[in-house]
Structures are given as structure tokens and as C-alpha cells.
Amino acid sequence: MDSQTQKVKVRGVNVFYGDKKALDNINLDIPERQVTSLIGPSGCGKSTFLRCLNRMNDVVDGCRVEGDILLDGEDIYAKGVDVVHLRSRVGIVFQKPNPFPKSIYDNVAYGPKIHGLADTRDEIDAIVTDSLLKAGLLSEVRDRLDAPGTSLSGGQQQRLCIARAIAVQPEVILMDEPCSALDPIATACIEELIDELSANYTIVMVTHSMQQAARVSQKTAFFHMGELVEQGDTEEIFTRPQDERTQAYITGRIG
């Protein structure tokens, strides 16, 4: 595995909400086909940062992004970038499972259809089956693909959302606290899934559970008050962090 390839390069990124600076001069490399965790107290800017990576902040009023975010060396904020296409390359899974009010099948088929990834029913069937398989959900829903997505349990819904994200063949998957609404067993399933997915996808995950960051990610970045305080190998960050603020946060000394 080539751990040296950096899928996303972030250089000097500032983010403003109106006059308020939410992120200050962020520089971060996100390695390809690895899991990178973003940790930090609420309001530190980690979710804001995650949303910069597929331009989800574009729709937030008064939000302004400065600096460079390069996906495979190309600036995703450059003029002429097709944001819809960008978001098919950089998918996202949210905190609360949010399946469309449609069948399990249609939840997964929707993306490939609108992005024109498949024309025939057979092709779409194949994508749906493959995506559900990769998301570890196929065996549980094979005989009820027509049931509404919302009829599934919370953990299954989250895996459905992951299947939906995978269906458009993304390169990067962003996850914003993907397990915070799930019980420990469903959480373990998602964590195992994240580990498997990292063989093929670059994953960036925001989490409030430091144990989760420690368990599933190879790289960890600690944000505090809009600043990227420390980044490095997960093992290093959790055993011998260099910055006092990282130390205080991960040992439970600041909120």
C-alpha cells in the first residue's frame, strides 16, 4: 500500500461565517485509502472543515472559504468546478441516518441514476446489490428491497446511507459522527465496515468518541477553537501528544 499518496491537500484554509472566523490557516494532508479522524471539542471547527471537503458550505449563508483544497492536485474551489460532480467523488454520511422516504432499492439506485452511471435496469440492479454488499447490509435486506428505507433499524439505516454513498463510486467518503446515534453493536458494525472500506476509499471522519478515533483511524487531527493544533499517526496522538491542548483534551481535562 502506498501510504505516501496524499488524496487531499489542504493549504492555508480560512473559513468565515460572516465576520466570524471559524477556521484559521488549516494545513492538512489526507492520505489515500486510509482513515483520518478529526477530533476536538464542540464548536472547534472540525465539522466545518469536513464540509469544506465537498463544498457543503456553499449553501450556508455568509460562509466564505479561503485557501486551497486540492483533490488529486486540483483545486475544488476553482471556477468551473462542477459541484454536483465533486460531490459524487466526495460522498458524505451524516450523524443521523437519513434515508430518503423511498424503498431500500431506490435509496441506493437514486445516485447512480441521476449521475448517469447506469442505463439499464440490469446495470442498476448490479450497482445496488454491490453497494449493499460492500456496506454489509445485503444479507439482511436481500428479500425486502422494496420495503421503505425508514423501516430498517438505526444501524441498518446508517449502513444504507453508506451504501447510498458508495453507489456513486466516490473516491473519498466523509463521515460526520456516523455512529453517534447508534448502539454499541451497530457502532461496532460500522467501525468494521469503515475498516473494510478503507481498502478502496479515502475516509475522513469526525468523531466525538476518542476510543473510536483510536480504533478505526490511522491518522488523527485535533482541532481546537478553529485551529488545527496537532496532526499525526493516531497511535502517537493518543499515547504521546506533543501539544498541551491535545493532551488536555484527550485525557478529559477540557470540555
Binding site: Q211, F238, T239, R240, P241, T246, Q247, I250, T251, G252
Partner: peptide, 9 residues
């Protein structure tokens, strides 16, 4: 407690 960093050490 699942201690981390200097606490773990």
C-alpha cells in the same frame, strides 16, 4: 476510565 496519553502512561 480508558485513560489516554499521560494518564495511560
Amino acid at each position: 476510565r480508558q485513560p489516554m496519553a499521560d494518564d495511560l502512561r
